Simulated scan of single mutants.
Amino acid sequence: MPELVLHLDPALRDALHDLADAQGRAPQEVARDAVRRCLEEEGARVRAVAERLARHHADLLRRLGE
């Protein structure tokens, strides 16, 4: 897996390490899960907006496709 370097301010880094320690996990695992969750949530939000816009403009989209 390609490496990604994140530069965190000291407070955020310390919070990440504290959470990882409390969960008995590596900080990288906690960060990876947080990024995954964020991408899933934002992806769902973007899909919902796109679907709402497609429904709202369905007639126009249909006419453009003709």
Rank of each mutant, 00 (worst) to 15 (best):
A50Q: 12
E41N: 11
R62I: 00
P10L: 13
A54I: 06
E29Y: 05
H57G: 03
E41K: 15
Q23D: 03
D14H: 14
A11M: 07
A48E: 07
L16H: 07
P27C: 11
G65L: 14
H7A: 15
R47F: 04
D18P: 02
A11P: 01
V46K: 13
V30D: 00
A44V: 02
L16G: 07
A48R: 12
P2V: 04
A50N: 07
H56Y: 01
P2A: 12
V49M: 06
A26C: 08
L61A: 14
A20Q: 04
G24S: 07
L19W: 02
P10N: 11
G24L: 07
E41W: 11
R32S: 12
A44R: 10
L19D: 01
R52N: 03
V49Q: 10
H56T: 07
A31P: 02
L4V: 15
Q28P: 00
L6W: 09
P27Q: 10
H56P: 00
M1W: 03
E66S: 13
A11L: 10
R55Y: 03
A50W: 01
R62T: 06
G43D: 01
A11C: 01
H17R: 15
A54P: 01
E29C: 06
V5H: 11
R25L: 13
R13W: 03
E66C: 09
L16W: 05
L12P: 02
E41L: 15
R37Y: 05
E41V: 13
V46L: 14
L19E: 03
D33V: 08
